[in-house]
Amino acid sequence: MSRTVSLRWALNLRSGTSCEERVDEGGFPLMGASGMIGRAARCNTMAGSAIIGRVGTVGAVSLAHTNCWASDNTIVATAGPTLYPTYMYYLLVGARLSELASKTAQPLLTAGAIGAQRFPVPSLAEQHRAAAFLDDRTSSLDALMGKRKAQLELLRLKRFSAVRDLLLRGHHGAKTKKTGLAWLPEIPADWDLVPLRYLTVCLDGKRVPLSSSERSDRQGPYPYYGASRVVDHVDDYLFDEPLVLLGEDGAQLGNPNLEVSFYVEGKAWVNNHAHVLRPAGINGRFLTEVLNVFDRNLYMSGATREKITQDEMNRILVPVPPASQQEELVHRILAARSQHVKLENALRSQMHLLGERRQALITAVVTGQFDVSTADGRNVTEGVSA
Results as ranks from 00 to 15, higher is better:
E241P: 04
G115C: 12
N314E: 15
L155H: 05
N345V: 08
S228K: 04
L317N: 10
F286T: 04
W69A: 02
G247P: 00
S373M: 14
G35F: 04
A132E: 14
D232P: 01
G115T: 05
A335E: 13
N271H: 04
S62A: 11
L317E: 14
D240T: 06
A95P: 01
K177P: 05
N255D: 14
R3D: 15
L7R: 00
V244Q: 01
R42Y: 09
R96N: 15
V293P: 01
G281R: 05
E99P: 00
N292C: 13
A40W: 02
L203Y: 04
A130M: 08
G80S: 10
S71Y: 03
S49L: 07
P221W: 10
W183F: 08
N257T: 11
S338K: 14
L166Y: 03
K175C: 10
R14W: 04
E153L: 09
G254P: 03
S338H: 14
E153Q: 09
V76L: 07
S261I: 08
H331R: 15
M300H: 05
I187H: 02
L109M: 09
R96W: 10
R159I: 04
R218M: 10
V230K: 01
R129L: 11
D235M: 05
M351T: 08
S62N: 15
G302T: 12
N271F: 07
N314A: 15
L141D: 05
R337E: 15
V260D: 04
G173I: 06
E153A: 15
T304M: 14
D217F: 06
S211W: 02
N292L: 09
R357Y: 12
M36W: 00
S385E: 15
G170N: 04
L199E: 03
V264H: 02
A130K: 01
V260L: 11
L108T: 11
N255G: 06
L253C: 09
G254S: 14
R215C: 04
R22W: 06
M36Y: 00
A360S: 13
A268F: 05
I114L: 09
T200D: 06
R305H: 13
G35A: 09
I308A: 07
T288W: 03
A251H: 09
R218H: 10
Y90S: 03
L154M: 07
V270Y: 03
H65G: 06
G383T: 09
E344K: 04
R348P: 00
S213A: 15
T74V: 10
L334G: 00
